[in-house]
Amino acid sequence: MDNLASLTDLAVESRNIAIERTGGEISGVTLDETEVDHAKITRVEVLNEQAGQQIGKSPGNYVTIESEDFRSGDRQVHEYLSGVVANELNNIMDSSSLGQNNGEETILVIGLGNWNTTPDALGPRVSHHLLVTRHLYDDAPQDSREGMRSVCSLSPGVLGLTGIETAEIIRGVVDRVHPQLIIAIDSLAARESSRLASTIQISDTGIYPGSGLGKQRIGITEEDMGVPVIAMGMPTVINSVNIVNDTINHLANNQNVAGEVQQMIQQNNISEQLIGEILQPFLGDLIVTPKGIDKLIGDISRILAGGINVALHPDIKAEDVSLYLQ
């Protein structure tokens, strides 16, 4: 990515950026869209390395669940959305080697992020609500294990809190616990402001913490960890450059804006790169989060944790998800 306005963790946005840049569809990238109650589901598959280089994402599957109701306070709708998350997570898990263990696998859930910084606290909050069973699983009778899996969870903090790379901590735990799957949850960065707290992404390619903000960290991927990694998250922050760009695009496309304003925007060829160059000395490093982020993180963490609980423990029904949130 050449400028801050292009930085995003969302594959669906990366695909759109590539299409804008090339003027056509990207070979080796497939898109499937589905509408369900309260949500739109978009599945992007990157088929090869060449396509991955075009959109800046690793080959694999990326699912986005978009819903304005993520921002609502309707618990009944949130429980339904937890079921949607569970279905999509199950679909990705089924495509991995997880199903070969007949339910006897151990799954390690990682809550990435800084619990002291609200927009970055999604991962640790999700971990707080999970139904963890590994400490009981080995001692439980065989018949009582049916419908449940061995699940453990960790919130390792961030480099600034521990002085240790997050991936190094996780690798140490993996070497001792020997999970068959890692699920990593993190706060993400978006390019479009409309996606803040309204889009969940699930992928089977792992995650590079902080990559949406241009940070370079050791990856939490199958290559790095030695076991499959599923990444989950929701955009909670956006760069200020993207907000300005969204505003200018809205003005340029708004029929109610005076023609001379639209003409000025078009004649001056106001691009993302130009916006970045102008704002960089003043606002280029400014990261923005939505109003009411405390409540949003609380609600989204329960939705994600509910979906993970339903997906990992088959005996938990989506309609009873709230009973199993810690």
Rank of each mutant, 00 (worst) to 15 (best):
A318K: 14
L136Q: 06
I278M: 15
P156I: 04
I107Y: 02
N114R: 10
A252G: 07
T205N: 07
S155H: 01
M93L: 12
G52A: 00
L31C: 09
S211C: 11
E13V: 05
V177G: 00
V321Q: 09
N239V: 01
V177P: 00
T117W: 12
P290Q: 09
S240P: 11
I182M: 05
V36L: 14
G276R: 02
E272L: 13
I248E: 02
Q54Y: 11
V177M: 03
E192T: 10
L4E: 10
V261W: 08
R125H: 12
L89K: 02
L31W: 07
G212E: 07
T205Q: 09
M1V: 15
I238C: 09
N239M: 06
S155K: 05
N16H: 10
R75V: 15
I300Y: 01
I92R: 04
V244P: 08
I41A: 03
A318C: 11
G292C: 00
Q50A: 12
I303G: 11
G298Q: 11
V227S: 01
N269D: 15
I17S: 03
S203H: 00
D224V: 14
G28D: 05
N309L: 05
S14L: 06
E35W: 08
E20T: 11
G52I: 05
G206K: 02
H38G: 01
G123F: 10
T247Q: 12
S271C: 13
T30R: 13
G163E: 09
P290L: 04
M148A: 13
L31S: 11
T118K: 12
G292E: 01
V310F: 04
N254M: 14
T64C: 11
V12N: 10
P314F: 11
G284I: 09
I19P: 13
L122K: 03
E35P: 05
N16Q: 15
P119R: 07
L130H: 10
G206Q: 02
I303K: 07
I202Y: 03
L81Q: 03
I293Y: 07
I17W: 01
N249F: 02
N245M: 12
N242T: 08
A5D: 12
I265R: 05
K291P: 01
F70P: 04
A197G: 11
S198P: 12
G111W: 02
T106A: 12
R15M: 13
N309R: 05
A121C: 10
L325F: 01
R134I: 10
D320W: 06
P281Y: 09
D143L: 14
M93V: 07
A189H: 02
A258H: 12
A311F: 04
L181I: 04
G284A: 05
L89S: 00
A18R: 00
L274H: 06
A18F: 03
R302D: 00
L81Y: 05
T205S: 08
L4Y: 12
A305E: 08
V132N: 03
R75H: 10
A140S: 14
D138A: 15
G103S: 08
G292I: 02
H129V: 05
H250Q: 13
T289K: 11
N114C: 04
I55H: 07
E146N: 13
T199H: 04
E165W: 08
G233P: 01
N116Q: 15
G147T: 04
V257L: 13
A197S: 14
V77N: 07
V177Q: 00
E104G: 07
L325G: 06
N249T: 06
